[in-house]
Simulated scan of single mutants.
Amino acid sequence: MSNDQRTTPRALRPGIYAPIPSFFLEQTEDLDLQALEKHVVMTARAGAGLVLAGSMGEAIHLARTERIALIKAARRALDAAGFTDRPIIAGIGAGSTRETIELAHDAAEAGADYGIAIISGYFAGAIAGNKQALKAYWKEVSEKSAIPVLVYNYPGASGGINLDSDIIAELAKECPNLAGVKLTCGDVGKLTRIATVVSDPSFTSLYPRKHANAPFLIFGGYTDFILPTAMVNGHGAITGLANVAPNAVVKLFELCEELRTNPSLLPEAQRLQGIIARADATIAKASIAGTKALLEKLYGYGGKPRRPLPPIETFTAQALWDHPHTQDLVRLEQELREM
């Protein structure tokens, strides 16, 4: 069922969301939807949400029809596994505002509940310092999108464009169809400032959302500050490490949530945060190819990125697997799976 046929999107809740890789067949580089469906169900069973066609999903390498195919396959797999209420967030960022809006409509028709939009960095020199142009992009996209939209702030993938907390807070107030932000800038101070605005008790009444079950949530883009995020009223993370060790990352988030009423859990939360933060920093250096190599090692699928993104060298992949930070994470994940 497409979201044009649904009265409201599936609820967007605080938590951990995995930006799902796009898997490709070895010889043809065609989409490997079978691997995608396995991975979607695996992460869902661990308690993680999912994002399709984002940076980890190599959105820049996908045709419009492939984005649609990913969403339909993921929705089919989730529903078949009993996760009918689990929302799908789909990457809709494109070179122009016009195409971003078109991708948002495609995503809604294919079964996505939310879009996440990054601004193109191709003309960053003309846009980065233009507050009006930056705000206009997410304003127009959210106003014309059939589904709620999240802001994706990732300077590394947008030519260095880095939204400040004032712009994001203003967008949250002015755009009722915006449902949150992902901060892959890694700026905990920025996250804190935005959280101060949207967690204020008056925010919901003064700036109501278009959909009551699509609140404005603030997600980090890495796992190395999930604990600090919780302490300033943030809402979790959209993080590539949740592909490799979803149970471990979800457990950390759950501990952080319980800390609000049970401070005695702080030492255990700090322990898990340390293991996960070290692994995140180590694995992130190997980028998409490294994550896929670890998935291949752990779960039997992963493959290579789509060219021109190079695969990881065999020696480097083995070194990544053998690294003590990776092995600490793998042990933690296995322990939690067996509980």
Rank of each mutant, 00 (worst) to 15 (best):
P21S: 11
P21D: 06
S22T: 09
F23I: 03
F23T: 02
L25C: 14
E26P: 15
E26N: 15
E26Q: 15
Q27Y: 15
T28M: 09
T28S: 13
D30L: 15
L31H: 11
D32C: 15
D32H: 14
D32R: 13
D32A: 13
L36I: 02
L36K: 07
E37D: 03
E37F: 08
K38C: 13
K38N: 12
H39Q: 00
H39F: 07
V40L: 07
V40Q: 04
V40M: 04
V41I: 08
V41L: 14
V41F: 13
M42N: 05
T43S: 08
A44K: 02
A44E: 01
R45F: 03
G47N: 03
G47A: 05
G49S: 12
G49R: 05
G49C: 09
G49L: 10
L50M: 07
L50E: 00
V51N: 09
V51H: 08
L52I: 01
L52G: 01
G54A: 07
G54C: 07
G54D: 02
G54P: 08
S55E: 06
S55H: 11
G57M: 06
G57E: 02
E58A: 09
E58I: 02
A59Y: 07
A59H: 05
A59V: 01
I60F: 14
I60D: 07
I60V: 08
H61V: 01
H61D: 06
H61Q: 10
L62H: 08
L62S: 04
R64T: 07
R64H: 13
R64P: 08
R64Y: 15
R64M: 14
T65V: 08
E66N: 12
E66M: 14
E66T: 05
R67W: 14
R67C: 11
R67N: 10
I68M: 03
A69S: 07
A69W: 08
L70C: 09
I71S: 11
K72M: 06
K72W: 09
A73T: 00
A74N: 06
A74V: 04
A74S: 13
A74L: 09
R75K: 10
R75T: 00
R76K: 14
R76V: 02
L78A: 10
L78Y: 10
D79F: 14
D79Q: 13
A80P: 11
A80W: 12
G82L: 06
G82V: 01
F83H: 05
F83A: 05
R86A: 15
R86Q: 12
P87Q: 03
I88F: 05
I88P: 01
A90Q: 06
A90V: 04
G91T: 01
I92R: 10
G93V: 00
G93N: 00
